[in-house]
Computed example of a mutant assay.
Amino acid sequence: MSDYPAYRTPWTTSHRHLGSDLRVRTYPAQGPSRGTILAIHGFRGDHHGLDLLVRHLPGYTIVVPDLPGFGDSTAFTTARHDAATYATVIEALRTDLGLPDTATLLGHSFGSIVAAQYAAAHPGAFAHLVLVNPICEPALEGRQAVFSRLAAGYYAAGRMLPGPLGLAVLRSRLVVDIMSTAMGTSGDPATQAYVVDQHRRYFSGFANRAILQEAFASSIRDTVRDVAPAIRTPTLLVVGELDDLGSVPGQYSLAALFAQANIEVLAGVGHLIHYERPGTTARLVDAFLAAEPAG
Rank of each mutant, 00 (worst) to 15 (best):
L140E: 11
R171D: 13
S148K: 03
R55N: 07
V114G: 02
D82T: 05
P10V: 01
P5G: 06
N133A: 15
L97W: 06
V64S: 00
P123F: 02
D226K: 07
P32C: 00
R149D: 10
A282N: 09
A193Y: 00
S180H: 03
Q198D: 14
P278F: 07
S112C: 05
F126I: 02
G279E: 15
R25F: 00
I178C: 11
L38P: 05
A103K: 11
G153L: 12
R80M: 12
A79F: 07
H17E: 12
A290R: 15
A230I: 02
L131F: 11
I113K: 06
T181L: 14
V89M: 04
A168D: 09
Q117N: 10
Y27V: 11
G246I: 03
V224R: 04
S172I: 04
R221G: 03
L52E: 04
G35W: 01
F258H: 04
R173W: 02
Q251L: 10
Y60N: 00
T191H: 03
F126E: 08
T280G: 00
E214Q: 15
L165V: 15
H128E: 06
L170M: 15
L140F: 11
P229Q: 09
L53S: 09
V175S: 08
T185S: 09
S109H: 12
L131A: 11
E241R: 05
A193P: 02
T191C: 09
L289W: 01
G31H: 05
H48T: 08
G142L: 03
A75L: 07
L174N: 09
D82Q: 01
Q30E: 13
S253R: 15
R171T: 14
I231D: 05
L266R: 02
Y202S: 13
A287W: 00
L140K: 10
